[in-house]
């Protein structure tokens, strides 16, 4: 069931079109991810959804309330985690939580119960007296999430919550998101990490304020055009240079190996001679499934 409905959203800053006719919906019990380059308009969309900026035209509805008219009714339903760390560094973990709990009208006793739960999943309990400014990056993000969670919102908007966060903390952070999804919340998140897209129910590629593609991670991978091959040789600079001189294929480093892309319906066999000429044994090449990152790069490249 859709709880967030955004239709034909436009937002300009002077001559710059930040959001260009953008529409999407988010459902309860779903994680929707937005991914795109810096300046693609993600933050503008999130701020518009959270009633923080005026938009030029279009409509945003949350639980059938219009954001531009009934925002006060939407606030209790909404949890927002901005891109920059937005808590008070000179207040302790617990004081930050208590402050937001108070704003959302929780009584002391309700807060004490809620606090236990939040500490349980965030692991922040032992640090409840520490000033928020002295927490590590991962902990800060968990505290920001906890503050956005304190009033049990139905819609979460998270703007790059895991940027600069180590892999283990990211894993723990996403475990929390998955729990929220299981409880029926709608989660809208932006991220620069491709592996997080794989954990989402739906993904939107966004570029220059417009939607480039939308679908489940599986559906998006299917949109890749061409074939992908893996070459099990170290991607030394010399080798990469030689590979990139071959017309018709594209080569990229892929960890300790190389990925080779052919265009359209062309296959690697057509290039075996070129590969042998630079001393590469075609037997070391195996076809592989394209990954979400391959699709993303292809969409952004076009």
């Amino acid at each position: 069931m859709s709880i967030v409905e955004v239709s034909n959203l436009y937002k300009t800053y002077g001559p710059f079109e930040a959001v260009d006719n953008f529409s999407f919906s988010a459902n309860k019990g779903e994680i929707l991810s937005l991914v795109g380059p810096d300046g693609a308009g993600k933050t503008s969309i999130f701020r518009a959804v959270c009633g923080l900026i005026k938009y030029d035209s279009g409509q945003i509805k949350i639980a059938s309330f219009d954001v531009s008219r009934d925002f006060e009714k939407i606030k209790p339903l909404l949890g927002y985690m901005p891109q920059t760390f937005s808590l008070y560094p000179d207040l302790s973990v617990e004081e930050n939580l208590y402050f937001y709990a108070g704003l959302f009208g929780l009584k002391r006793q309700q807060f004490d119960e809620k606090k236990k739960l939040l500490y349980q999943f965030s692991g922040l309990g032992p640090f409840h007296n520490r000033h928020a400014g002295a927490l590590s990056g991962g902990m800060k993000q968990k505290l920001a999430l906890s503050c956005a969670l304190v009033h049990d919102p139905e819609v979460f908007v998270l703007d790059e919550p895991t940027t600069g966060v180590d892999p283990l903390s990211r894993r723990q952070f996403w475990d929390i998101l998955k729990n929220l999804r299981a409880e029926g919340s709608a989660i809208i998140v932006s991220t620069p990490y491709i592996d997080e897209l794989e954990l989402s129910d739906r993904v939107i590629f966004i570029y220059r304020g417009s939607k480039m593609a939308e679908g489940t991670p599986g559906e998006l991978v299917q949109k890749f055009v061409g074939q992908v091959y893996q070459l099990d040789l170290l991607p030394t600079s010399e080798r990469m240079q030689q590979l990139n001189k071959i017309e018709g294929i594209t080569s990229r480093r892929f960890g300790a190996s190389v990925h080779i892309y052919t265009r359209g319906s062309h296959t690697i066999e057509e290039y075996h001679d070129d590969l042998r000429r630079i001393g590469i044994d075609p037997d070391l090449i195996t076809p592989v499934q394209p990954e979400l990152e391959d699709t993303f790069i292809q969409f952004m490249g076009n």
Binding site: P37, D38, G164, P192, S237, R253, I297, M300
Partner: peptide, 24 residues
């Protein structure tokens, strides 16, 4: 120190191409 935090995958790859060239 975390030169690519918050940068999208396409840009990160380009940034790393520069780093490889430096290493070479």
């Amino acid at each position: 120190d975390e030169p690519t935090a918050g940068i999208d995958p396409v840009f990160r790859r380009r940034f790393w191409e520069i780093l490889y060239r430096l290493a070479d």
